Simulated assay, not measured.
Amino acid sequence: MPGLMLLDTPSLYFRAFYGIPESMTAPDGMPVNAVRGLIDMIATLVRGHSPDEIVACMDADWRPAFRVAAIPSYKAHRVATGHQEEVPDTLVPQVPVIEQVLDAVGIARVGVPGYEADDVIGTYTARAAGEVEIVTGDRDLFQLVNDDQPCRVLYTIKGIRNLQVIDEAEVSAKYGIPGRAYADFATLRGDPSDGLPGVPGVGDKTAAALVTRFGSLDAMLKAIDEGVTDGFPAGSRLKLGKARDYLAVAPAVVKVAHDAPLPEVSIARPSAPRDPERLVALADRYGLDNPLNRLLATLAP
């Protein structure tokens, strides 16, 4: 399925960090498990899917102000100090190395001030003229699945070599909802991992039943206003009614942006390194010869 491949880069390097021992080090002893793991992930993805275009999407802001203003608890439990995300000490110095490697290889690395990687992915998806594959371990991006485009998620829950392909049918099978209704479903049930409370008393089954019955959150709220009772249990109506304040702001937090101001950069898959000398220096400095050689071999025409 050649087309555009969008990498949820933070999701991938966190997975690499936790999946590969920290005993994988540079010549000076610095752990490079996340760096090496991400390089090998990209090589595997390119070899298996042959995208025409590829973007490493980044978190320029992991906790955007517009989401915190709507729901102050958004990711609050992950804050270390100030606005800094709690990240393992041995991962922190690897992120700049990842960025330098991507730049030297020539893989577009895109982050937008004030937005998360998810929003970069959402905007590229909205602008894409053809097929899109999103590589992530984050269920939030299931909301972008669209068979008409087509856009599908390559879900890393079982590993990069055993990707779970998420299309509309798979969303329906997993959650019992229409294939494009994941954002409204997630808004109703909440997500403790992101600090989203959801509607009190509404779990997965109730959220799925409501989304299936009405099709959207807006339609549910309209039904409450119009006094609809058919297929709308009184308990659910009461719970949603009490949560109107939350439901007025939550969609802006849950739904990924489709209008982030993307920079003008080439997203074509490189066939040769953009900066060979810099790449050699990075390979020597961090002991990355083998993974980089594997990646370059997959990129070569």
Rank of each mutant, 00 (worst) to 15 (best):
T123I: 10
T123Q: 10
T123Y: 01
Y124N: 00
Y124A: 02
Y124W: 04
Y124D: 00
Y124T: 00
T125K: 12
T125V: 12
T125D: 13
A126F: 10
A126N: 06
A126T: 08
R127N: 14
R127W: 02
R127P: 10
R127I: 09
A128Y: 01
A128M: 07
A128R: 05
A129S: 14
A129Q: 15
G130M: 04
G130L: 04
G130V: 01
G130E: 13
G130D: 12
G130C: 10
V132H: 06
V132R: 09
E133T: 05
E133K: 11
E133A: 09
I134L: 07
I134G: 04
I134F: 03
V135R: 00
V135E: 03
T136F: 07
G137Y: 10
G137V: 08
D138G: 06
D138Q: 03
D138M: 08
D138Y: 01
R139P: 02
R139Y: 11
R139F: 09
R139Q: 15
D140K: 03
D140A: 04
D140V: 04
L141G: 05
L141H: 06
F142D: 01
F142K: 05
F142A: 04
F142V: 05
Q143W: 12
Q143R: 13
Q143S: 05
Q143A: 08
Q143T: 12
Q143H: 13
L144V: 09
L144M: 12
V145M: 01
V145H: 00
V145P: 00
N146E: 13
N146L: 09
D147L: 08
D147Y: 11
D147F: 06
D147A: 12
D148I: 13
D148Y: 11
Q149P: 04
Q149H: 15
P150E: 15
P150Q: 05
C151R: 15
C151H: 11
R152V: 05
R152N: 02
R152E: 06
V153G: 00
L154E: 08
L154Y: 12
L154M: 15
L154A: 14
Y155N: 06
Y155K: 12
T156P: 08
T156V: 13
T156K: 10
T156H: 10
I157A: 12
I157D: 06
I157R: 13
I157H: 11
K158N: 13
K158V: 00
G159L: 03
I160L: 13
I160Y: 03
I160H: 06
R161H: 08
R161F: 04
R161D: 15
R161G: 15
R161V: 05
R161W: 08
N162F: 01
N162D: 15
L163V: 10
L163F: 02
Q164N: 07
Q164Y: 03
Q164C: 00
Q164T: 07
V165N: 06
V165Q: 11
V165P: 07
V165K: 14
I166S: 01
I166E: 00
I166H: 01
I166D: 00
D167R: 14
